[in-house]
Simulated scan of single mutants.
Amino acid sequence: MNFLLSVAFVLCWSSGFIGAKLGAGSAPASTILMWRFLPLAVILLAVSAAGGAAFWRVLTLRDMARQGLIGLLSQSGYLLTVYYAIQLGVSSGTTALIDGVQPLVAGALAGPLLRQYVAPRQWLGLCLGATGVTVVTTADAAANTADAWWAYLIPFLGMLSLVAATFLEDRSRTRVAASASMTVHCITSAVLFTALAAGTGTVTPPPDMTFWAAITWLIALSTFGGYGLYWLILKRSGVTKVNTLMFLMAPVTAAWGALMFGEPLGLQALLGLAVTFGAVVVVHRGNTSPAEQQVP
């Protein structure tokens, strides 16, 4: 069951980069993000209303505020930086590479912030994963020409935003149901992105079916699938393992882009994909119990 959840998570999260590329040619990032989350927020509000007061009764005002902050960091901040970087010319593969640094950052901070022990075998897997991701995307980064050099710094902000949200959730004493937390997160993102689109005059969607295909793709696969499974696996397996799966995003995105958009996928990328899969195996076959224990 855990294996199937991991596979589904990797595919759904990687679909976000593909969906971003699908929509990037027809509308600015603010338009895509607004129309991705506005209908989603309406759907989730309707579902919560159908559930009655019991849906919200379990959440205190403090819980809702905390979940709102987590949503701003993990969803709004992360996605805005990713989409903006792609809009500036940073390729999806390079963006995935930068996001691939997240497991190392999370692993390094897990000890001092969460008092979780990270085993040496897991550190080996994390470093091996970073090597695989680098191999996959080095050629892509070298060939890509963004509008400005600082565009490559933007995905780093998104990566740090997601890491901060992960730790904030993991340190929470109250466990909130995934349905309730996703509803709060999506409402928060819908309000933020609608305000951003209105402020920049980019509310009106383009009369292009490609745009709406990308929006449907992003809602169904990337949000419900990738984002929902991220928090589910985090609660079941802990910070180190869920973030190790993030190493697979860059090679999977590269392979997917080759099949869907005809992007080049050479021997170097295939080698990196194999190394990355090996890193995940090393971490997940390690001694799992100490890795998730609290340090005395």
Rank of each mutant, 00 (worst) to 15 (best):
A254W: 07
S172M: 12
V135Q: 03
T202P: 02
N144S: 13
L114P: 03
L162N: 14
K235P: 12
L168A: 11
V191C: 10
L61T: 13
S26Y: 15
T216G: 14
C127P: 01
T137Y: 00
F9E: 06
F247M: 06
A139M: 07
G238N: 08
A53R: 12
K21D: 00
F261N: 09
I32F: 01
F261V: 10
T81G: 10
Y152H: 11
S76L: 13
G129M: 01
M1R: 13
L59Y: 01
P251T: 04
A110K: 01
T200S: 13
S48W: 06
C127L: 14
T188V: 11
T138W: 10
T131N: 12
P296E: 12
V82C: 09
L80S: 13
A146Y: 09
P155D: 06
L196C: 15
A29V: 13
S15Y: 11
A119N: 11
A220I: 03
F261K: 05
S26I: 11
V239Q: 01
L221T: 04
G25I: 00
Y117G: 13
G100Y: 03
M249W: 09
T240W: 01
V176P: 06
V47D: 09
L232I: 12
M249I: 14
E292A: 14
Q87I: 04
A180T: 11
E263T: 08
Q67E: 15
A190E: 06
V252K: 02
A46V: 14
P155A: 00
I98P: 03
M34H: 01
P155Q: 06
S222K: 07
L126V: 12
I43M: 12
E263C: 02
T166W: 07
L61E: 12
V90M: 02
Q268F: 02
Y84R: 15
G278V: 05
T134Y: 03
L4F: 09
A49R: 14
L162C: 10
D140E: 14
G111V: 12
A96C: 07
T240G: 08
L104W: 03
L22P: 03
L221N: 10
G77A: 04
T216H: 14
K241R: 14
I70H: 04
G93K: 00
L248K: 07
L271I: 15
F55G: 09
P103D: 04
D147L: 13
V82N: 11
A165I: 11
P28R: 11
L104S: 07
V239E: 02
R66V: 10
H185S: 08
L153A: 15
S92V: 15
I86E: 08
S172D: 11
